[in-house]
Design a binder for these strands. Sequence first.
DNA 1: TCGTATTTTACGAACGTTCGTCAGTTATGT
DNA 2: ACATAACTGACGAACGTTCGTAAAATACGA
Lengths: 193, 193
Amino acid sequence: MKSNEIKEAALKYFTIHGYEGASLSQIAEEVGIKKQSIYTHFKGKDDLFLQVLRDAKETELSSKLQYFNKIDSKNPEKDLYGFLKLVIDLFQKNEQLKFWLRMSFFPPAHLSKAIEEEVINLEEKVQVVLESKFQDWIDAEVIVRDAAKTPTFAFLGVVDSIMLELVYGNDEKRLKDKLEASWTVFWRGISHR
Amino acid sequence: MKSNEIKEAALKYFTIHGYEGASLSQIAEEVGIKKQSIYTHFKGKDDLFLQVLRDAKETELSSKLQYFNKIDSKNPEKDLYGFLKLVIDLFQKNEQLKFWLRMSFFPPAHLSKAIEEEVINLEEKVQVVLESKFQDWIDAEVIVRDAAKTPTFAFLGVVDSIMLELVYGNDEKRLKDKLEASWTVFWRGISHR
DNA sequence: TCGTATTTTACGAACGTTCGTCAGTTATGT
DNA sequence: ACATAACTGACGAACGTTCGTAAAATACGA
């Protein structure tokens, strides 16, 4: 399917150069067609962008939800750390998460409304499922008693900081160090000891 | 000084639209001149951008270093939390930190090398002074014994996550919640209890 | 199976706009 | 007068987009 090839190339250029910096001619060249041919598959640049955006959202959402639905253990230490590893893995094996991150925080101005909706929608869903997990662990007394929101937001903060380090991305060693440091302190902060 | 007005306007547009999305004509219009007049003060778009970048770097660096040089107390709880509040304050009262953050993580491709140098240079300096503070606190036994790098990186992670929330920026309540949650868990993670 | 009709896909050419930049000229103030 | 600053005018290049057309793939009836 050629439209998928186009979306792949578009993802790459949108991620590297942003919406304004990515040109249709570059994207077309990557696929081996002329830029006019893009209009056979998409209404225009905005349409292409929004389809790439929705694909990225779906990939990220399903990956994360799937992870939490799979686990049922009473072992938050393993599960939470595993989630951080999952995020790193997602980030490194496809570009969609990096694209998503860039557009979440620095959306093209004329599409910021539409993007913001998608971002909030995804964020809420992740937060809800995460918060209920933390509530379970609190009830089971495997982590410290607290408002479930506290470890939830703190953990989302750790995820964010790891993702930033991934975006920054030129230093594998530093990533590992930051991950270990953030995780160590976070886990000490929510576990009994 | 007109060149400062131009840099101010440029900062604004670079921050909102990125390098590629910001046009010299928009910037000039904001100042009340024609775009060609910008060349009286700057060699071109790149020159203008790099000057704005260096100004932003200096502001951020001096603000942060000044904060840590001012404090001498043995009260990390107050000082570290105060630093987070400082970051929030810096972010909200001028655009330079937001600009800096955007360009750190999503630099225009043809200037990424120059930008990366500046970023690494700043990051190192902040890390060094922060790490020595943590070492002092560890030696004074006011926080848990650990490699100084661990609380340093963890704290930098908290700073990053707060900054991301600031970029996201449309929800004051959520910012407060995330700050409290991250801080609570972080402090529990490095303090005796 | 073959030939034809229909749809899908890609293309060249061109559109109007905007981009960053350069050159030459006019106005302002010391 | 001289320097500084902002102007007008123009440049080539790139942008996203539209149009009409040719080729390629598909569907279909004989």
